[in-house]
Write a protein that binds this DNA or RNA. Structure first.
Length: 514
RNA sequence: GGGCGCGUAGCUCAACUGGCAGAGCAACUGACUCUUAAUCAGUAGGUUGAAGGUUCGAUUCCUUCCGCGCUCACCA
């Protein structure tokens, strides 16, 4: 028998003894006067004399995180809302039966106590307990008390223990919640309507990624988990919702990594009658507001760096300007704008870039715009720590964006980078149905050329555009990555409560031997 | 899929060059009515991830497998 099974049995036995003392094993409620955070807020600064004079009566509940027994008295710490409060239990005050109950308690149990507040000799605010109410038994032992839980796998698999034992982890998820609230407040106050669009889609559109596939039995049809809500949100702008947004999960069947999780949360919003410049400004404001709401200021620690979200610290440059700006010294003289103009000149640029130590893959068959994006990623991404807006993206990688009026090979599209991550993507929405059909056809050709991520044709979407979609700007914001940046977390798994893990052995039906 | 690293008690970690598998916490028993990493005395807890190999002898060296982490590739 493993130790935790022994402890389980021992504690079940204690639970029976607790019942024998007249307590319910799993009571349904406990009336409290304060939460532990409320008590700390109200009485943390009250001197001992005041407490003795007023004898503040309290009823509080919490989980026992430490317990010390000394003959006929003892101390314990209760935890609630991530905060701890000490209780003092002595036989004289709780009676023989009450003290028998106290002796049957373990670290991890939930109890409620009533009594009054006082300060110990060392000055710690403490509840002088007069009655203990047993609430719930912890049948399994908690992690070790001062090293806590550090095993990364256990932290993710048993996040509840992680949250219980590691206050910093709890704080990250509180911050994440604040972030989402901030974004909702920002958009709601500007007249945006929050909507929910399909997660299961017959065509996985709106981004370039491999989708998850599932099957609906009654309709006997293949469905894809969405890779983006984009095409549905834009159908809503056709329907007359001029300002819409959605905060929800996307699913992409790709690799995992420090900034990639197969399911991730994205904010997408669309506003009619403004272009990519309009949503660029709006998104910058949204991010600054979010930073202020989460950080309480504009500056946040990011590893060895400090990211400053203040508007004065943002930079804006075109993709081509960025490649020029961050062109590595060892690759020779900086390119000129004209070097991006033709397939041949871009090919020469790649050759020059690769003559340095860096090397990017180059496929002569791929469209020139794709090559330029590869060049951009290789040359600049590591430099983009502070908030930076990169605008004007090649048309060939932007099948849903409007072209620049004077340069049809380029679109009115931008991305925001910070902490070496892409965190937002926006553009003037392509609303010409015929051009949209041509772009889809172009994507199909790439798909036939072996690009599994190329966009699929969506006839219903083209039909919607044919009814006339107002000019609009739209944006996607990676909520998880933004949460990482605002909480100094360096793995996306640290901002997702239950990140995807390989299933635990013995956790599924198939693993159980017959 | 490639590379690097890790796997020892429930948790956090030791074990020298290959030589009797250990400590703290948690657990159990006892003492203790202001402790807070409570203290003191005692008890129990292990197929060292698995299988095989080398060796008088393997936690240690080798091989394969399993699991996990990091990283690269894929991810516009």
């Amino acid at each position: 028998m493993a130790l935790d099974e022994k402890i389980y049995e021992l504690r079940r036995d204690k639970l029976r003894q607790i019942e024998a003392l007249g307590q319910k094993a799993y009571p349904t409620r406990f009336e409290f006067t304060h939460t532990i955070p409320e008590i700390l807020l109200e009485y943390a600064d009250k001197p001992a004399d005041d407490l003795d004079r007023s004898r503040v009566p309290v009823r509080v509940a919490g989980r026992i995180m430490a317990i010390r027994l000394m003959g006929k008295a003892g101390f314990a710490h209760l935890q609630q809302g991530g905060q701890k409060l000490q209780i003092y239990v002595k036989s004289d005050a709780v009676g023989v039966q009450g003290f028998e109950l106290y002796k049957l308690l373990d670290v991890g149990d939930h109890i409620g106590v009533s009594g009054y507040l006082f300060r110990t000799r060392t000055g710690e605010l403490t509840v002088h307990v007069e009655e203990i109410t047993f609430l719930t038994k912890d049948l399994l032992p908690l992690p070790e008390k001062w090293h806590g839980l550090t095993d990364v796998e256990l932290r993710y698999r048993q996040r509840y223990l992680d949250l219980m034992m590691n206050p910093a982890v709890r704080h990250v998820f509180l911050q994440r919640s604040r972030l989402v609230q901030s974004m909702r407040r920002f958009l709601d106050s500007r007249g945006f309507l929050e909507v929910e669009t399909p997660m299961m889609q017959p065509i996985a559109g709106g981004a370039m990624a491999r989708p998850f596939v599932t099957h609906h039995n009654t309709l006997d049809m293949e469905l894809y988990l969405r890779i983006a809500p984009e095409l549905y949100l834009k159908r809503l702008t056709v329907g007359g919702f001029d300002r819409v947004y959605e905060i929800n999960r996307n699913f992409r069947n790709e690799g995992l990594g420090w900034r990639w999780n197969p399911e991730f949360t994205m904010l997408e919003f669309y506003q009619a009658y403004i272009d990519y410049r309009g949503v660029m400004d709006l998104t910058q404001q949204l991010l600054i507001q979010a930073a202020q709401d989460v950080l309480g200021g504009t500056k946040g620690k990011w590893g060895e760096h400090e990211i400053d979200w203040a508007s004065s610290n943002w930079r804006r440059m075109t993709m081509r300007e960025a490649v020029i700006e961050y062109w590595p010294e060892r690759a020779g003289a900086k390119p000129a704008l004209s070097d991006f103009a033709s397939p041949d000149s871009v090919k020469t640029l790649v050759a020059r870039f690769n003559s340095g130590h860096v090397h990017i893959a180059y496929d002569p068959k791929e469209p020139t715009g794709k090559t330029i994006v590869n060049l951009f990623d290789a040359a600049t991404e590591e430099h983009l720590i502070q908030p930076t807006i990169i605008y004007e993206f090649p048309t060939v990688v932007s099948p849903l964006s409007k072209q620049k009026a004077d340069e049809p090979d380029w679109t009115e599209r931008w991305e925001i980078f910070a902490g070496q991550m892409e965190i937002a993507n926006g553009f003037s929405e392509l609303n010409d149905p015929e051009e949209q059909r041509r772009r889809f056809a172009q994507q199909l050709a790439q798909r036939e050329g072996g690009d599994e991520e190329a966009h699929q044709m969506d006839e219903d979407y083209v039909r919607a555009l044919s009814y006339g979609m107002p000019p609009a700007g739209g944006v996607g914001v990676g909520v998880d990555r933004l949460a990482m940046l605002l909480t100094d977390s360096h793995s996306i798994r640290d901002v997702i409560l239950f990140p995807l893990l390989r299933p635990e052995k013995g956790s599924t039906q198939e693993d159980i031997p017959k």
